[in-house]
Every structure is written in structure tokens, then in C-alpha cells.
Write a protein that binds this DNA or RNA. Structure first.
Lengths: 140, 140
DNA sequence: TTCTCTGCAAATAATTTGCACCCAT
DNA sequence: ATGGGTGCAAATTATTTGCAGAGAA
């Protein structure tokens, strides 16, 4: 199965690269559409799947909600805000961490290992602080 | 908002506990249905969401399109088979690893940190080996 | 009694697929 | 010219929601 470089595919890659990462199929669709109005959402989905399978982009699978795709294939981890669902890159020196080896995970062939850190981003911390204040006021 | 302990809720918790973890709403629904045929899938969804918000069960934010829920709230990681999508628990000494601290992730309040290891489980390794053999035969 | 919870059905959201035509190689 | 790629619409899959009645506190 040969991969062909179509205009659509090129556009998708360019936008993904430009955006600096973590777009959903839908977000990407909206962007690509501006310069290629007749592209179909299905095409975006199909290509994201194909390109990530080919290792050209990376698929981030964070449970349940929408898949996100990332242009940078180099090794890095992510931090995920549980409030607003924003995802940011994380530069960690994984070589300094003790990471599972086949011996620690009996029988498995390990293909990847990444750290998912969850937290509350600065913006959401502010929002939450405000909410708490409001609640207090209501009670009184 | 008070939480009430209904039969449905009790059943869901019991089955989740019994199963030793990582069920999707749908899988859980099928199990609970055996002893409670009139339960609705919507109830399962609603309760999984509520119970995980209350900290009684855990929502796994890892790979896969469906959300999965876990009874064991204690800290542990998971390994995910990229072939059959099975998820198994992983006991790792995270204290021995250097794990992100607030200083490494500027501004974030860190709520969790989980290692997501992907790989191919023993069963799938066998399956894949068999497939390869078949392909070779076809070529000849 | 009060208010949360439930079942049902219908609505949304996210993604995939069938098909006929298009176009990169 | 061949076979992968595309757009469109329809189909699936996963999850959520409105509502009226049920049942835990």
C-alpha cells in the first residue's frame, strides 16, 4: 500500500505543524477548510489515522473524549488539565527515570512508554478560586 | 447534593469490584443486567460519572475510545496492549522514579501522574507470529 | 414528604464506512 | 491505466439529556 501525497494530506500536515500541536480532527478540519473549502471531515479523519499509523504524526489517546493529533514525533510527554482539557507538552528526562523493562512487565513486548500527568492549569486555578469565593458568599 | 445508595448503585459497585477492574460502561451494563434486567444503560453511565467524581471509583484517562472505570483507587499504573486493547495493572515503585514536581511544570497544580506503557501482550505476540507465517506462505 | 434517582426514548457527539468519481504515480 | 484518495451522505458507536414517575432519606 503506497502513500500518495495529495493536496489534502499536505494541507493537513502543514496546519498541524503550524498549530504546534494537539488538535482534534474537528479543529484541524476548521483550519484546513479556510484554504480548501471543499475538503471533507471524513478525509481529515482518514488522513489523521493513516498518517499516525505511518508514524508521521502522533495520535494522543486520552480516554473517552476526542482524539488529538500531534506533529512532533520526537519523544515527549504531556500534561493534561482536568478542568479545561488543555494539553501541553512536557520535557522530561526520561532516561533519568526508571522505566519499565520487559522483566518488570512479564511477557509483554513494550512498544512505548509515556507519562500522563494530570493537573489544573494556572488559568483554571484562578477560575476555581473565584468559584469558591462565590459559594461562600451564597452560604452567608 | 446527597448521594443515595440505590440498588443500582450498589450493584454497579459490586460488579466493578468483582471484575477486578477496567470495565467500560457497556461491559458493566451487560454484567449488571444479568441480575437486574431492567437497569438502563443511562443509569450506568450516570453512576459511573457520579461515583468517580465522588472518588469512590476511578476513571481511567488512558488510551482507547471508551472510558474505563476502575474500582481500586490506590495508586497504580497500567499497561495497554495495542493489539487487543486489554489493560492490565502495573505495580511500579514510582517513588524510585523522578516524577514531575510543580517546579518542572510551571504553574500547574499536579493532581496525578500516571505512566502509560503500551505493548503487545503475550497472547497477541503469538497471534502475530502466526499471521507472519501465513503471509510468508502466501508469498511463496 | 422531599428531592434524588431511574427508565425510556430521543438527542448529541465523535467517528467510520459505502460508493461513485477523481487524480497522483 | 491502476489503485489509492476524495467528497458526500448515511451508518455506527459512545455518551448525554429531558421528562415523568419511583423510591431512599
Amino acid at each position: 500500500m503506497q502513500l500518495r501525497m495529495t493536496n489534502q494530506r499536505e494541507m493537513i500536515l502543514r496546519e498541524l505543524k503550524k498549530s504546534k500541536g494537539h488538535l482534534t480532527a474537528d479543529e484541524l478540519y476548521e483550519r484546513v477548510r479556510k484554504s480548501m473549502p471543499r475538503i471533507s471531515l471524513a478525509t481529515v479523519y482518514r488522513n489523521l489515522e493513516i498518517l499516525s499509523e505511518a508514524g508521521i504524526i502522533r495520535k494522543l489517546e486520552i480516554s473517552g473524549r476526542q482524539k488529538r493529533f500531534d506533529y512532533e514525533v520526537e519523544d515527549h510527554d504531556h500534561i493534561y488539565c482536568v478542568e479545561c482539557h488543555r494539553i501541553e507538552n512536557l520535557q522530561l528526562d526520561k532516561s533519568a527515570m526508571k522505566v519499565p523493562t520487559p522483566e518488570t512487565v512479564k511477557g509483554y513486548t513494550i512498544t512505548g512508554c509515556r507519562l500522563e500527568v494530570t493537573g489544573v492549569c494556572p488559568k483554571c486555578q484562578q477560575k476555581l478560586a473565584k468559584k469558591k469565593k462565590k459559594k461562600k458568599k451564597k452560604k452567608n
